[in-house]
């Protein structure tokens, strides 16, 4: 008799734990948004939408959650779950989170915008996040920091579905890169771990270029430029890049020794 697959259980459990953290993050962002709205009300100034605020902060949040996901491996193997079931479960959970977070952010943002629109003294800031990218001076450190803060952005007021999908893709990449770096440090020594950070930065930069190409957004003058590619090729390459990241994580964790 074939036994029941274990990875859906791992996925559900990881989604619950990681989801709690993400909800905590979104809750803090709501408090920040309320604070910003109060300040804007007092000063009579503009306030960014909640979606845009989450858009900036969620990359780092998902990156950190991705790193921490490595440490669930120990818990699962200890409880008789294979590395394969852990990997599949965590991957499903990461995709679930990447879809849920933007949807929640969008719905909360819409509610916030509705409230702000009824407050006379506060106006919504129509942020042009993409243009900020063009203002960086092209040095490597600046580009790296910028890649982690300002990912390719679509404003939900122009196309909400595309905005949600873009944010989903961005944060899924950040989660997987965090997971990949965490797994490298867990499996190998520090030097290879540091090397994985470099690989992660390169992957994020390529992802940025491809996504900007796909969305027809302005391409900054970066150290990795893919503007020679046709925009129709960018989505399949992006998906391949996601597959490559997943394959790298699986290869690293496939036979890894559990530290005691």
């Amino acid at each position: 008799m074939k036994s029941k697959a274990i990875y859906p259980k791992v996925a559900a459990d990881m989604l619950t734990v990681l989801g709690t953290w993400v909800l905590g993050f979104l809750g803090v962002m709501i408090l920040v948004q309320v604070g910003k709205t109060v300040v804007a009300f007092i000063n009579g100034s503009e306030v960014d939408t909640y979606f845009n605020a989450v858009f900036i902060a969620s990359n780092i949040a998902m990156f950190v959650i991705g790193i921490i996901s490595t440490y669930f491996l120990h818990h699962y193997v200890e409880n008789g779950v294979t590395r394969k079931d852990y990997f599949k479960g965590a991957l499903v959970a990461s995709i679930g989170l990447s879809i849920a977070l933007p949807i929640i952010a969008f719905l909360v943002s819409k509610l916030g915008e509705f409230i702000v629109m009824n407050i006379d003294k506060v106006a919504l800031n129509q942020a042009d996040i993409n243009s900020a990218v063009m203002e960086t001076d092209g040095n490597i450190v600046g580009n790296i920091v910028q890649a982690f803060i300002i990912a390719p952005h679509i404003d939900p007021s122009s196309n909400w579905l595309l905005a949600i999908t873009t944010l989903s893709l961005n944060i899924l990449f950040f989660f997987l890169v965090g997971w990949f770096i965490g797994a490298s440090f867990y499996r190998f020594h520090v030097v290879i771990g540091l090397g994985s950070i470099l690989v992660g930065i390169i992957i994020i930069t390529i992802k940025d270029s491809l996504l900007r190409l796909a969305l027809d957004l302005p391409l900054p003058d970066q150290y990795i430029s893919l503007d020679f590619l046709p925009s129709s090729a960018s989505i399949p390459i992006l998906l391949l890049l996601l597959g490559l990241l997943a394959w790298l994580i699986r290869s690293i964790t496939k036979r890894v020794s559990i530290k005691m």
């Binding site: 036994s3 193997v77 008789g80 779950v81 294979t82 394969k84 036979r255 559990i258 005691m260």
Partner: peptide, 25 residues
């Protein structure tokens, strides 16, 4: 307990290699 793989030799539990074997683990 499948925390490690041996460098050489073998271990079987109920005739199966336990490492990454869901039903044995």
């Amino acid at each position: 307990a499948s925390f490690h793989e041996p460098t050489s030799g073998s271990i079987t539990i109920n005739g199966e290699v336990p490492f990454e074997n869901a039903s044995i683990m």
